[in-house]
Design a protein around this nucleic acid. Sequence first.
DNA 1: GGGGTATTGCTTCACCCTTA
DNA 2: TAAGGGTGAAGCAATACCCC
Length: 298
Amino acid sequence: MVGKMAENDLWTKDRERDFFTKSLEIATPEQLFYVSKDGNYYAYWPKKYKGVKTTLQSRNAFIGAYTEKWSQEVLNKIARELNFYAVRNAICEELELTKASPADVVISKTNSVFQESEDIIAIFEVKMSILWNWELLKNNSGYSLRCLGDYKTHQGTPGLLRSDSMLKAIGKSISVRIASLKSARIPIIILGNTPVAKSYYIKADNLRSYGIIQGFWSLNPYPLDNNGENIKSTDRQGFIRFDSFYEFKNQLLTILKEKEIFFAGMKTKKALGRVIEIANKEDTYEEKAEKMLSLMRD
DNA sequence: GGGGTATTGCTTCACCCTTA
DNA sequence: TAAGGGTGAAGCAATACCCC
């Protein structure tokens, strides 16, 4: 069999083939593909397509479910080695991760949808979509899929290349950061399967430097066909493309070990000076930091 | 000033959950 | 049980920007 998915593959074309194959078992082709004026079934409108177009909505829920489940499985392999769990759609009221807007995946000490902030090791927001263009061909025995080209050959802007997807991820991360001081020690990572747009290189790096988002991570080693050039990482690692499961795993373990905390505030120099003075009376560096964090919130 | 392209606010709509 | 609203992926189109 050609193109069999290996156990430790990251996002590949075969993953998308699998998405359509599995989804066609429970959905109609019309729910998953655009139908062109000449009766062809496309995942995206080809760049040169000039006919009347519609906007597909029915595929969204399927893509969301598939990519979140896949991300949970990849993360769970790493989590289990540490005796943690990767939990999908995690709710933690304290961090404003509500039933209406849960965390896509968290790594946690407990294997439950309902989470205490103390148990959460890391928070992941999944922002993945179908990248390649596909044509669905019908034959006697059913369907087959033909890859028509990478995302430069169709009219869509998938995943983290869309500015509104980036802004949504940033917004949700800030919501968690301001919900409670208890989120300060929890890394927040955005998982995608595309590069980020040039206009977001600096933003991704600054979000990491400021401690709001620890990384925009693409789990797609080859987003473009024919060795198309795409960014490996931004200058300060705000965005990283992972080329193997092991590279991904190492970076994740590094982040989990670092034990960094987020802090932010808007104060006069005088008020900040007072905070530092009071915090400095504590004995250890850790206690000084904790005191400062709690005073920053007053 | 014209033409092309990148950026980004706005819009669409299925699905799902909550509320009256 | 219907209305209302949130969520998510993705198309549309106005504006900004660049180069001649």
